[in-house]
Amino acid sequence: MTTATTVVDVHGLEKTYGKANERQYRALKDINFSVAEGEFVGIMGASGSGKTTLLNMLSTLDTPTKGDVIVNGHDVTKMRGNQLADFRAQEVGFIFQDFNLLESLTAEENIGLPLALKGTASKVMDQAIHEVAETLSIADLLQKYPAELSGGQKQRVAAARAIVHHPSILMGDEPTGALDSTSARELLDLLTTINQKQAMSVLLVTHDPFSASFCQRILFIKDGQIGSELKRGSQDRAAFYQQILTELGTFNE
């Protein structure tokens, strides 16, 4: 069993795409790592290295071929059907590169969705929505539809939806990928705030060193395996950014 302070624990994870009689591709090979509560962890790697695949395993959008994934004490590889859906709805907050907002709902309704799924009372729900909207400074956008929002605003709404129900971990797959540098920076600052203020664990997938420099620890994936690891320690972000660049230089050789 994992200790109480570990939110994610991955053991011998393997993923092979394609059925036994088809052409197979091993996207992940023997992955082992863990994320402690309140930690801000980044996952970096070249395109096609298996970052999205790994995140999909953790968020139960896909099932591993082998190995264990334990999130907040739940062994996700043993879950089925509704359990998986409920797990995603309750334990995981997810921010996607393409926002994934429902354009037929207002920002407020989008944010409230995870609570509605839980069956939260509407008063409690309103309160939670407004709290999170304050934190992310989108209170004045609540009545708007996604089509009326800019990319950066959309992503902030998406972030609000990801954390409104206080999941045990927040995951993002290139959440800054579709944003300009200012918006990207704002979002990363927000993620840092959330991570620090609410002590929420964050797992950020990115190939961008700037984004990665906001993390406390970075795992580098190459060809489906964790190649190396980098810790920020007490250095400031700019120094850590330099360190990441250096690491990438050697890592990619």
């Binding site: 968020s59 959008l61 059907g81 509704n82 859906a85 409920d86 797990f87 995603r88 709805a89 309750q90 995981v92 997810f94 996607f96 994934n100 907002l101 429902l102 354009e103 037929s104 969705l113 995870p114 799924l117 939806r161």
Partner: peptide, 15 residues
Amino acid sequence: RRYRMLYKVGVRQNL
């Protein structure tokens, strides 16, 4: 697309 999003957010299939 919309239902794919709902799926990712964790909506049960039955729902």
